[in-house]
Design a protein around this nucleic acid. Structure first.
Lengths: 153, 153
DNA sequence: CATGAAATAACCGTAGG
DNA sequence: CCTACGGTTATTTCATG
C-alpha cells in the first residue's frame, strides 16, 4: 500500500500541502527541480492515490460553526446490521467531520462541528433515535490549539 | 466574526471544498453564474478569511502513516508557564494533527498520526518528558470511518 | 454583472544528456 | 530519469461598458 517516494517527491508533497495553488514553475523552483519532472511526479502521485484531492480549507468560526465536540460512544450492539446503519448515519451527517472505530472499551469517536450547543443536542437526539447506543460522552472543545491537514513526510 | 454570505457564496464554497482545482468557468457554470462575480466573491472571501488556504489532501496510509491515536490528557498543572510550553510542544510536533483544550474533567484531546505503535510510544515518551502530565489515555483507531475537511454550509 | 483582452500557466509533445 | 525548449490550449486577472 505505501508508495515508494524519494526526497524530491516528498518536497513536492510538502509544497502542495502548504499551498496547492502554487504554479508548477514556483514549486519546481522551491524544490530545486524543473517543470517537467515536477509535473510528471504530481501526475503519478495522483494516479497512485497519494494525492487524494485538492480542497479549500474554510474557517469554521467565520461560517458560524462555533462549537466543536468530540463524542465518545460505547455500544452493546455489534451486529452487522446495526453497524451498517450506524456507519451510514455518520457518513450521511455533514456535521460529523471525523468518525473512527476504536480498539478498547470505547467503541467509536466522532468529531462534530455545529453552530452551537443546541445544534449539537439536535444532532445527538437524531443519532440516538436512529440507532441504539449504550453510552455517550461528549467532550466540548474550548479552544482549537491546532488543526491541520498537513501530514508529516 | 461570522461573515454574511448569501446563497451564491455558499454554493461557491461548496464547489471549492469539493475540488479547488476547478476552473472559474466550471465553478461559475455549476453555481449558475459567470466568471467575474465568482472571481470577485472568491477574492473577497479570501480577504475576509472565510477561505483560509488551498491544500492537497494526501492519503496517510499511502505515506506509511498507518496508525492514528486519539489521546485524552488530564493534567494537574494549570500555570501559565506550563501551558505555554505544552502548547508549543503540540504545535511543533508534526504528528499532532489536532489539539483541543476541553471543558470538563479531561483537559486536552489530541489526534496523532504516526507510522506505527512504536512511533506513537516515542511521541508519548517525548511528550511526558517535556511536560508534566497527570493522566493519559490513548485510543487507537482501528478504522477511519469518515474523515473530511468539508464543512456543512 | 457581462464582455473581452492580455498575461500567465497548464499540458504535452520532442530532442538531447 | 532529468533538462530544456516550444507550441497549443486553458485559465486567471483585470479593465471597461
Amino acid at each position: 500500500m505505501a508508495a515508494q517516494l524519494d526526497e524530491l517527491d516528498r518536497k513536492i508533497l510538502g509544497e502542495l500541502q502548504l499551498d496547492s495553488s502554487q504554479s508548477l514553475d514556483e514549486i519546481a523552483r522551491k524544490v530545486g527541480s524543473s517543470k517537467t519532472p515536477v509535473w510528471n511526479r504530481i501526475r503519478r502521485m495522483r494516479e497512485q492515490g497519494v494525492i487524494t484531492r485538492q480542497t479549500a480549507i474554510l474557517d469554521a468560526e467565520a461560517l458560524g460553526l462555533e462549537a466543536c465536540f468530540f463524542v465518545l460512544i460505547r455500544t452493546s450492539e455489534h451486529e452487522a446490521e446495526w453497524q451498517r446503519k450506524f456507519l451510514k448515519t455518520l457518513r450521511d451527517r455533514p456535521e460529523v467531520l471525523e468518525a473512527h472505530r476504536l480498539a478498547g472499551d470505547i467503541d467509536y469517536i466522532l468529531k462534530v462541528r455545529v453552530r452551537n450547543a443546541r445544534a449539537y443536542d439536535q444532532f445527538y437526539q437524531a443519532l440516538i433515535s436512529e440507532v441504539k447506543i449504550y453510552n455517550v460522552t461528549a467532550l466540548l472543545s474550548m479552544e482549537e490549539i491546532k488543526s491541520t491537514t498537513v501530514l508529516p513526510l
